[in-house]
Design a protein around this nucleic acid. Structure first.
Length: 699
DNA sequence: ACGGGTAGTACT
DNA sequence: TAGTACTAC
């Protein structure tokens, strides 16, 4: 049975570290006079005093709550200090908080595997460190403990009246008759308290932590005593903890799944789940979720701490509530430009600092249609390959928006035709960049490989053309890859896409005054060829066991190890008939072990110098006409000749947008190389024996 | 439509 | 793959 299996695996020491009202602390560090005062961070002062997004504990004691407006907060606590989130480009700018989060991560990532779970939360797998401590400097043999460890809360530790709490904790830490697992947890408590003190010393931020034998319990524990405290969950107290824990407190059960558990099964606490068999839970919620529920009821969670210090995507978005809704393409374009500028900036920081590039650009939106009873409809998200450079991202984002708008209007009843001007309003926009991969570092990026591969590059003028022709297999079958610079999904869906783009966004990228031409002429008319079938929002409330889509939640089967294995195999397999740049990358790629696990700050060896200035200069070259030609002219992608970028060819200044400048065949190969490997079939969802196959993660 | 702006995961 | 849905802070 799963129980026994898991229990034996769970002699782990996992910590969850949670920064206390983080945004407030960041602002207090900036303005030390705010320390110790009731304070809150708000954004957008305009409406009812702005929205509260973080509240200091002093203010909470005054009754101030998150999701109050600034005005209400002042009412509840007149002395409260309200600090505004920094604004850049007309929108909230969270960079200072992200950076502060990185500071914390760099302190915490020294001991054990570290996963950045959010801007202000981190998981640590301290198993190894705890085991080492137990052998070398076991708490049992320790004479003195730091005060901080003695302030730990130990769940289930009974403190009698009149007895000294710290002394009780000290005794618990030193217990010689404790189980091996609890001894490890005691070591974990010592380590975590040291780490928290280090965080305070290095960053001036306080945090709270939970120490337990899995992620789920550690996360629960870190929230139990805040701020600036830590809580340990000994094995013996798990059952009692979960028995009375309201189900909504559990991660993943705070939403619809939790509600349906209450409604469908009358489950109110985690302990209530114990009465249901695994099969029963699976019947209701699917195999994976069912098993997962059965496990968490017993405090079992096999979730691994991922060694990941960096985010997997970057996004920039803004809402335009109520009357602020955007009603013209011009205003949409204006805001998209702002969002894309920010996104681009962050992409270049990531490239610069972490040597990573993002491969997919996605646009999300929300919108309503006037005169429609279902006023707020889903605005479809759209994505395309990401090209670096503000200008390009802005262009592509606008195109994606237009495609989305077309779907949005087209797939709905289009009887509202008389209203020529503003039949729609956009209430939120966001652009995000995902599928981020590390580029081979240790040298000078992509360019180095071009240069290194071809001796001619050491001479004055290494033509990329030569490189490409040498490398391209002579197969003509690459024509399908010939998407040029046009987002390919759009091409497929909208054969007239080139014209659309041409008429809307392509007049002159250099001319800032071309906004007015970007009306969506043709869009509304053309929408008539779209399916008129009003596909309603599919609200999936219905019969019980189809209420929710089956989820894996990745608790049951963690695939990342398998992914790593698959990656190697695939990389090897790639070295097949094609001889091209891919091979070079592959050789390098195989020789280095997962870069992603490396520290954020090991960037000294690499010197890619990318400046936004040179980028924009680069942008100015690519006119839309060329892009259209590229698109229409089959595969005859002209690699730009004689451009300054190439003729001077400074390998230190090359940027990743060169991928887009390559012939499609090479682009495709390159992207294939970059593409995240597929999951091996073994690991298909629903196979509850999956984790038997999981090799140990050793990073 | 004021819990905003982000982020992650899973599924199809 | 692209797109959707859900969840969380």
């Amino acid at each position: 049975m799963p129980v026994a299996r898991r229990e034996t695996c769970d002699a782990r020491v996992i910590a969850h570290v949670d920064m206390d009202c983080f945004y407030v602390q960041v602002e207090q560090r900036k303005q030390p006079n705010l320390r110790g005062l009731p304070a809150a961070v708000i954004q957008y002062n305009s409406y009812k005093g702005g929205a509260l997004i973080a509240v200091s504990y002093e203010a909470r004691r005054c009754g101030v709550k998150r999701s109050m407006r600034g005005d209400e907060a002042k009412e509840a606590c007149p002395q409260i200090e309200l600090v505004q989130v920094p604004v850049a480009r007309g929108k909230a700018d969270l960079n200072s908080y992200r950076n502060a989060g990185s500071e914390v991560v760099s302190v915490l990532s020294h001991k054990g595997r570290c996963e950045r779970a959010s801007i202000d939360e981190v998981y640590l797998d301290l198993t190894h460190a705890a085991e080492t401590m137990l052998v070398e400097t076991s708490p049992e043999s320790m004479q003195d403990f730091e005060e901080e460890v003695l302030k730990s809360h130990v769940l289930g530790l009974e403190i009698e009246d009149g007895s000294d709490t710290k002394e009780e904790v000290r005794k618990w830490l030193c217990r010689s008759d404790a189980s091996y697992q609890d001894k490890l947890l005691a070591c974990g408590a010592v380590i975590v308290s040291d780490l928290r003190m280090q965080v305070l010393k290095d960053t001036e931020f306080t945090c709270s932590a939970g120490i337990a034998h899995n992620k789920m319990l550690a996360k629960l524990a870190s929230a139990m005593n805040k701020p600036a405290q830590q809580t340990v969950v000994p094995h013996s107290s798990v059952e009692g903890l979960l028995a009375s824990l309201p189900i909504k407190k559990m991660k993943h059960l705070g939403g619809k799944l939790g509600s349906s558990l209450q409604c469908d099964l009358g489950v109110n606490t985690v302990g209530d789940l114990l009465q249901f068999s695994e099969e029963k839970l699976q019947q209701w919620y699917g195999i994976n979720t069912g098993t997962w529920l059965w496990n968490i009821a017993r405090g079992i969670s096999g979730e691994e701490v991922e060694g990941r210090l960096l985010p997997k995507s970057h996004g920039s978005g803004k809402t335009f509530p109520g009357p602020q809704a955007l009603k013209t393409i011009d205003s949409v374009q204006h805001w998209l430009n702002q969002l894309c500028e920010e996104l681009n900036e962050r992409l270049y920081s990531d490239l610069d600092q972490n040597k990573r590039i993002a491969q997919t650009l996605t646009l999300h939106g929300r919108a309503y249609k006037t005169g429609d009873s279902d006023s707020l409809r889903k605005f479809p998200s759209k994505s395309c390959p990401l090209r670096y450079g503000t200008r390009k991202i802005q262009e592509d984002a606008l195109i994606l928006f237009q495609a989305g708008l077309r779907d949005f209007l087209g797939s709905y009843s289009f009887k509202v035709h008389g209203n020529e001007n503003s039949i729609w309003g956009v209430t939120s926009l966001s652009v995000s960049a995902s599928k981020i991969v590390s580029i081979p570092s240790g040298t000078h990026s992509i360019a180095k490989y071009f240069g290194g591969q071809f001796p001619s590059s050491s001479t004055s003028n290494p033509s990329i053309d030569i490189v490409i022709h040498d490398a391209v297999p002579s197969s003509p079958s690459g024509s399908e890859n010939c998407t040029g610079m046009v987002p390919y999904d759009l091409q497929l869906q909208y054969p007239d896409y080139a014209e659309m783009k041409h008429s809307n966004a392509c007049l002159d990228p250099q001319d800032p005054s071309n906004h007015s031409t970007t009306k969506v002429e043709g869009l509304t008319e053309e929408s008539s060829f779209m399916s008129p079938s009003g596909s309603e929002d599919r609200v999936t409330h219905g019969e019980p066991h189809r209420v929710l889509p089956e989820k894996d939640l990745s608790h049951v089967s963690n695939l990342s190890s398998l992914k790593a294995v698959g990656k190697k195999k695939r990389a090897g397999k790639m070295l097949h008939e094609n001889c091209s740049i891919i091979n070079i990358f592959n050789n390098y790629h195989n020789s280095r072990s997962s870069l992603e696990q490396k520290n954020v700050s090991n960037a000294h060896d690499v010197k890619i110098s990318l400046s936004l200035e040179s980028q924009s200069a680069d942008d100015s070259y690519s006119t839309c006409n060329e892009e259209i030609d590229t698109n229409k002219g089959g595969c005859s992608v002209g690699v730009p000749q004689g451009r300054e970028t190439w003729s001077s060819y400074n390998i230190d200044e090359i940027d990743p947008s060169i991928i887009d400048e390559l012939p499609p065949e090479i682009q495709e190969e390159f992207r294939t190389w970059l593409r995240p490997q597929k999951r091996p079939n073994v690991a298909k969802r629903g196979s509850s024996i999956t984790h038997y196959f999981l090799p140990d993660k050793s990073r």
